[in-house]
Each structure stands twice: as structure tokens, then as C-alpha cells.
Design a protein around this nucleic acid. Structure first.
Length: 274
DNA sequence: AACTGTCCCTGCAAGC
DNA sequence: TGCTTGCAGGGACAGT
């Protein structure tokens, strides 16, 4: 399930390959993937003949900035199972390929998404106005985080996953961050001491930066791949996610527990998270 | 305002 | 073996 580190890995791949490339052909066969467009024709018309100028990320969204009509970008959200793959135009088209952008260098950018929770559309930054600051690029100090937390009083995990509060953190990284910060998922933001907030800030930046360095987490069922189809390695560094029944790496006498909350699985160590 | 449950969707694994 | 069931989850939404 692509979260900020996975999307940032893809962004870095594409930022080396796409700027200056012209989109010579655009096709969309998956109506649900381009659900913000009335039909594939309008999507194609907005994209074909444009040049990609930059590749940006905001939270879990990728933006391929187009030369026209300014300001417009191809906005991509990978949902749970989305992949954005650079491949030769002649490579076989795998099942669940919903959008194909043909480039002027003989390659395609293909959007593949079996579960169709992801989407692709042409839009401006205004279409992402509901997002909070980016959890890496927009968060600069523990004091800033403390001020943000002071405006809310709610459980930490849903707050970290609230894209309007902080953009980019999902189920896996919220659990990893909270374990690194030694805080329980159900601690309320209003109950945090200044030292707690400092640990949370350091855990957040530390976990996300390490995960980016290791090119994200590829799990058995999520099929996360970078733009060249390669897997990440941060799953090898997970301390709690998917480790229920295993020993805690920080306090080895404790066992990682899995609970269901808010309709999602949460993993934590009852021994060292409070 | 905060929280829970439901839905969308496919692939995979467990159980009968 | 072959079927059914449950589970995974990002985000929108309805209901409490």
C-alpha cells in the first residue's frame, strides 16, 4: 500500500526520466481510474501533445506538471495496489493496465491498478487543497508539530493517518512511527508531554527518511514496485507491522500485539509503547 | 468534533 | 480438489 516513502521513491525515479519528455499518445481503458473525467476522450485531449516539465509529490499524490494548459498536472494516486511503470512501448501489457501515456522516446508510462482504488486525472494543485502539510517536506520542527497537535485532541494513530492533518502517512508507517516514538496508537494528542512530542517528531522524520532511503516497503500482497518494477527493502526494517506474536526488538520480553481499530489492523508493543 | 461502520475492488489464503 | 469466506486497505461517506 503505497504511502509517502513509496510515492517519493517513484517520484525520484520519474524526476530523472520524465522532464522534457513529450506525451505523444494517451489512452485510458479503465473508466474507474479516470473517474474524475467524463470520458477517456477528455482525458486524452488534456494530455496528448504536452511535455512533462517536473515531477512533484504532495502526500501520497504524484503530480506530473504539464507544459499546457498551465497550471495543470497529471495527478496520480496509487490507492492500495497502484503501480506507475516505465516500460518499452513494445512490452506486453499486463492485466489491470488502465492508463498508458506514450512518450516521445519509445517508452510508456503505465498505470496498473488491480483494486482500482487509485486514480489518474488532469488537475491543478487546487484539487489537492484538502491535504495538510506534507509529512516530510512540510514538517520542519518539533515546535511546528506541537502547535498542530495543540489544535486537536484525538487519538494519535487516526490523527497521523488524517491526510488533512499531515499528508502521506498510512497504516504501515503510522504503526512504525508510533513504535519508534514509544507512544500507543490510542494516546490522545492532548495528553502528550513536550518530551513525547519531541520523540514523535524525531520518529516521524527518522522512519520516513529511512524508508525513503530503502526505497519503500514491498509486502507480499500489496505488490508495491518502483517505476522500473523493482521492490523496496524497508519491509525488512519493520518493527511492528505484520509482526504480531513476535518479540519486540526494543523490549524482547514483550510480544507485538495486533488489534482492530477504526476498521484497520494496528500493531504495537504493549511493553514499551504508552 | 470525534469516532465507527460501510462501501468500493481484486487477489490470495484459509477452511470446509 | 474446489468451493466459499475472510482479509488486506485509502478515502469518501453516513450515522451516532
Amino acid at each position: 500500500m503505497p504511502e509517502l516513502p513509496e510515492v517519493e521513491t517513484i517520484r525520484r525515479d520519474l524526476a530523472r526520466e520524465l522532464p522534457g519528455r513529450r506525451i505523444v499518445q494517451a489512452g485510458a481503458t479503465g473508466a474507474r481510474s479516470i473517474r474524475r473525467h467524463p470520458d477517456p476522450v477528455s482525458f486524452r485531449a488534456a494530455v496528448e501533445g504536452t511535455t512533462v516539465e517536473a515531477v512533484r509529490r504532495w502526500g501520497k499524490y504524484l503530480l506530473l506538471d504539464l507544459s499546457r494548459p498551465a497550471p495543470a498536472s497529471v495527478v496520480v494516486h496509487l490507492g492500495m495496489s497502484g503501480q506507475l511503470l516505465l516500460s518499452s512501448t513494445t512490452a506486453p501489457v499486463v492485466p489491470h493496465t488502465h492508463v498508458v501515456l506514450g512518450l516521445d522516446d519509445g517508452r510508456d508510462l503505465r498505470f496498473v491498478d488491480p483494486r482500482t482504488f487509485g486514480e489518474v486525472f488532469v488537475g491543478s494543485d487546487a484539487s489537492l487543497a484538502h491535504l495538510g502539510v506534507d509529512a516530510v517536506d512540510g514538517l520542519h520542527s518539533g515546535a511546528q508539530l506541537a502547535a498542530m497537535l495543540a489544535r486537536r485532541n484525538t487519538r494519535l494513530k487516526p490523527l497521523l493517518m488524517d491526510q488533512g492533518f499531515l499528508a502521506g502517512i498510512g497504516n504501515i508507517y503510522s504503526d512504525e512511527i508510533l513504535h519508534a516514538a514509544r507512544l500507543r496508537y490510542d494516546r490522545t494528542s492532548g495528553s502528550l508531554s513536550p518530551a513525547d512530542v519531541r520523540r514523535l517528531y524525531r520518529a516521524m522524520t527518522g522512519v520516513l527518511r529511512s524508508a525513503i532511503e530503502q526505497r519503500g516497503s514491498s509486502l507480499a500482497d500489496s505488490q508495491y514496485r518502483d517505476a522500473f518494477g523493482a521492490v523496496g527493502s524497508y519491509q525488512l526494517s519493520h518493527r511492528v507491522y505484520g509482526r504480531q506474536g513476535g518479540g519486540c526488538f526494543r523490549c524482547p520480553r514483550s510480544t507485538i500485539v495486533r488489534v482492530k481499530t477504526g476498521g484497520r489492523s494496528t500493531f504495537f508493543c504493549p511493553g514499551c509503547q504508552h
